[in-house]
Design a protein around this nucleic acid. Structure first.
Lengths: 203, 203
DNA sequence: ATGGGATGTTAGTGGTGAGTACATTGGCGA
DNA sequence: TCGCCAATGTACTCACCACTAACATCCCAT
């Protein structure tokens, strides 16, 4: 919702004077379900949407801009899952993990090392971190603001790492139970308790 | 040193009947200092080494194989930094972080999501994890073997995430002091204490 | 010394993609 | 109704790159 994607996604008139921009983003997200961000090309997406390879340049200065828009949209969506006030550290981490595992390619794109980033992505990312800080603050009253920020970044990092390791093939030890553990890890970081043993509390 | 790279790196006779394979790996590592793994091409590397673009195929079946070899070498090197018996959790994490920040591209390549991986990389990666588990075991006697493995993976993940977030641009909060914190975080995970406050113990 | 296998080179194929200049279309305001 | 202008299409240009095939060279073992 909000204004992230200009509403008319599927229906609407058509392509000629339509919402190519939004369509491209949508198609990009879809492509990321099966492909890797590095393999995404404007031409391909354009073709998938039913448009020639040069059309996207009316909406994005270059390939990087499209990728940024997609990443920003991702941050907005994850952030939205954190806004309910009942969400605290463990649950927050769980939701992020859920998003990341549901959309691996998309998530990867969001945390890819990139040099300079545009204002849209910067804002979306900042909003995400801010929301996460809020979650931490709600979780444990006794922390100073700086401490909360620090914890938020640590939780974020832990999630990023878990997801990443899980995606990396060949780590036999890292089975399906490891990823939910990210939530437990996050919780323990905030509450100061040690990571709970393997048969972690169901929720 | 070990036998990871066959010794004769720079000196030795020359290229014709030399150690092209090792040279390519070395040059690849060097290229990763400034470039991204995705941008690495066999042609480029070959040219840098002073050889035509088709020569590498005598040593690597394809591009992926070269990347794997480079990644494996990376794991061997990091592993080597963990072997001294005095190294415990905090220091171990610190050394990994040190390697990762000193060679960002290389490190990225090592933790890139890749489908099937070859035996060399699998072994190197396995060796790394095993060594890390050893470090954990040395750090806190009271843990069961499974618990140690779990902790090792968690530490590994935390480091991966910290490095990654640090590399991602635009996270204003994440300044230089954040990365060393990975070590503190690792330590706290193992010892069960909470992350130390911001002005962390210098070392 | 010599023949063969490993190592490199020359040439070439086929494919992909980013980005651009210019023509074209069609909706919408005057 | 007409003409403007934004949104697409057409048609290129350039630059890369992975990989292959066939030929050349060098070194080592017999």
């Amino acid at each position: 919702m909000s204004k992230s994607i200009p509403a008319n996604t599927t229906t609407k008139s058509a392509y000629h004077h339509g919402d190519l921009r939004a369509q491209l983003i949508r198609e990009g997200i879809r492509a990321l379900e099966t492909a890797d961000a590095g393999d995404l090309s404007l031409r391909q997406l354009a073709q998938r949407v039913g448009v020639t390879g040069s059309a996207p340049y009316r909406h994005f200065p270059d390939r990087a801009a499209l990728l940024e828009a997609i990443a920003a949209e991702g941050y907005r969506r994850v952030t939205a899952t954190l806004t309910p006030t009942g969400v605290r550290a463990g649950e927050g981490a769980r939701r992020i993990v859920h998003f990341a595992t549901a959309h691996p390619g998309w998530w990867e794109l969001m945390v890819v090392t990139g040099g300079a980033i545009g204002p849209e992505l910067e804002e979306a990312r900042g909003g995400f971190l801010a929301e996460l800080v809020g979650v931490i603050e709600r979780s444990d009253g006794g922390d100073s603001p700086e401490e909360c920020i620090r914890l938020a970044v640590a939780v974020w990092a832990a999630v990023v790492g878990m997801i990443r390791l899980n995606a990396v093939g060949g780590v036999a030890v890292l089975d399906a139970t490891m990823v939910p553990d990210a939530a437990a890890l996050a919780e323990s970081m905030v509450t100061g308790r040690r990571m709970p043993p393997i048969g972690a509390p169901p929720r």
